[in-house]
Amino acid sequence: MTSAPNDVASLHNRLKEQSVFLSNYATQLLACGATTVRIEKNVSRIASAWNSHAEFSIFPSHIILNLWDEERTQSYSSIGRIKAGSVNFAIVNDLSRLATDVEERHYDIELARHYYEKSIIRPRMNRWLLLVLVGFANASFCYLFGGDWIAMAIVWFATVDGFFLKQRLSQYGWDFRAVTIVSACVSAIISCLGYAYGISSTPEVALATSVLFLVPGIPYGNAVNDMINGHYLCSLSRLAQAVTITVCLSVGLCLALLLTNINM
C-alpha cells in the first residue's frame, strides 16, 4: 500500500515527459507544413508505442494535447505554442521516420528526444543554389504562360533579385508581410524592363510571372487537405496566413505598377 502514491507519482512523471515531448513534436510538424492527417497518425503511433493514448486539438497558434495512461486513470495536458518557421519537408520526413522507429524499434523517450533534436537542426539547401533554382523555376513558369525567351530571361533576373532580397530581409528579422511586399515590388519593377525598352513581345507575361515565386502554394494545399480531414480551424488558420501573404504580394505588385506608371 505504501508504494501506491509513488507509483502514481512516477506514472504522472512519465506522462508529463511524454506529453511535453509529443506537444513539441506536433507543433514542430505543424510549423513544417505537415498535414493534420499525418500529425494525428504520427502522434497516436508514438503514444501507443509508449502505452498511452493521445488526443489533441489544433488552434490558430497553439496545440492542446492530452495524454492518458493505458487504463485511462491518470492524464496530463499541455499547451504548446506552434513553432515559428517556414515549410520544411525534410524535417517532416525525419520526424515521420522517428514515429516509425519509436513503434518498430521501441525507442524510449530519451532516444526519441535525441533523434528529435538532431532532426530539427538539419541544414537547409544551400541558399545560392536555391536562389538559382527558384530563378529557373519562375522563368519556366513564364514559358508555361506563353512568354517568349526574352521575357523568360527578364523573369529570371527579377526572381533572383526578389528572392535574394527575401532571404536577406528574413535573415535581418523583418516581418514576413513586409518582406513579401518589398520583394514583390522590387521583382515587379525589374520585370518592367520589357515594357521600358520594348525588348520582349510578351512584357505582360513577364510582369505577371515575376512575383509568383512568392505565392504560398504549400499552405493553400494544406488548407484544402485539412478541410477534407475535418480540421476546420487549422484549415482556416492556414488559409488566413496564405491569404495574408497573397494580399501582401498583390500590394507589392500594385505599388510597382503605380511607381512605374505602366500603361495597362
Binding site: G33, A34, T35, R38, F89, V92, N93, S96, S140, F141, L144, F145, V205, L207, A208, T209, L212, V215, G217, I218, G221, N222, N225, T246, S250, L253, C254, L257, M264
Partner: peptide
C-alpha cells in the same frame, strides 16, 4: 517519404498566375 512532400510541390506549376495578375490589374 510523406505524400504531401511529393504531391503539393508538384501542384505549384499549375497555379493560374495570369488570372491572379489580371485580377489585381
Amino acid at each position: 517519404c510523406p505524400v504531401e512532400a511529393c504531391a503539393l510541390p508538384s501542384l505549384l506549376p499549375m497555379v493560374p498566375g495570369m488570372y491572379a495578375y489580371r485580377s489585381v490589374q
